[in-house]
Simulated scan of single mutants.
Amino acid sequence: MRLDRKALSPPLRPANLLSARQLAFAWSLMGLIALIAWVLVADQARAMGVEPGTMGMGIPLFLLLWLIMMIAMMFPSVAPVAITWARAIGRQSAGAVRAARTTQFVAGYLLAWTVFGLIAYGLLAATGAVVDDHPGAGRWIGAGAFLIAGLYQFSPLKNLCLRHCRSPMGQLVRYAGFRPVVRDLRVGAHHGAYCVGCCWGLMVVLIPLGVMNVLAMAAVAVVIFVEKLWRLGPVFSAAIGIAFFVLAVLAPFQPWLLPGLAPPQSPMPMSSVLRP
């Protein structure tokens, strides 16, 4: 009995081609959103400069800028998870519903980072007040920030969260069985919480380096991306921890390592905080 090879090969359906186009579109969209966020952050950084503390911003303005920063820094590394979830949604939902559900996932993810943004605001306000009253304390605050970040790179919680961020499919499959009410928002917030757990130590170094230091933000974003997506990410994470220990030793004697804790040279008018 002769077998027809054509009968054994699955036909190339238009739906498969559409899926490939949708996947390319999703990657392009995530990249475009991150790029726009980087442009906005760079523009604001030029207007605000690098100073200690919250630079005169209230909580609403700070959180708005913080979310733009998180979109710029985190979207490249979270894109594989978001797109994987969107593809899973695509098997069950029409285009408009899929877009709405994916938006819920992203909103949940950003919600987790917004909560951490409130903590970051408190830390910046506290360190800014200390530096204003005692300028010499900045070098020890900087050394402490690098030390904390370095120690966290080797902590069990960091390793747990990094494992989840590198292989999140187990959690995504578990959430697929949950009731559909705000499920996508919960999935995004849950993954975002793991992401915060993985990356908060890296964000702490922005206190000495400058929360509006674009080069520092870009470096942290690259570290996050490599940690999560490179096959040697855990080894790379340990190397970054060692680098932070070195910076902690150098910080008290090298003020140029602490631009985010240097007292401002002249006050900046609040009218220039946000450009129209």
Rank of each mutant, 00 (worst) to 15 (best):
M1F: 13
M1H: 15
L3Y: 15
S9D: 05
S28P: 12
A42K: 10
D43P: 06
Q44R: 14
R46S: 13
P52V: 09
L65I: 09
W66H: 11
A72C: 13
M73V: 08
M73A: 08
M74G: 00
F75C: 02
P76H: 07
P76W: 06
P80V: 03
V81N: 03
I83L: 06
T84G: 12
A86T: 09
A88H: 12
A94P: 01
A100G: 15
Q104T: 10
T114A: 12
A120K: 01
L123H: 13
T127E: 05
G136S: 11
G136Y: 13
I148T: 03
G150R: 09
L151P: 07
L151W: 11
L162G: 04
L162K: 02
C165N: 05
M169K: 12
F178K: 11
V181M: 08
G188T: 07
V196H: 02
V196E: 04
L202G: 06
M203H: 04
V204F: 02
L206T: 02
I207H: 10
L209G: 08
A216S: 02
A216Q: 00
M217P: 08
V223E: 07
V226I: 06
L229F: 00
L229Y: 00
G233V: 10
A239E: 08
I242E: 01
I242D: 01
A243S: 06
V249W: 14
L250I: 11
Q254P: 02
W256D: 11
L258A: 12
M270W: 14
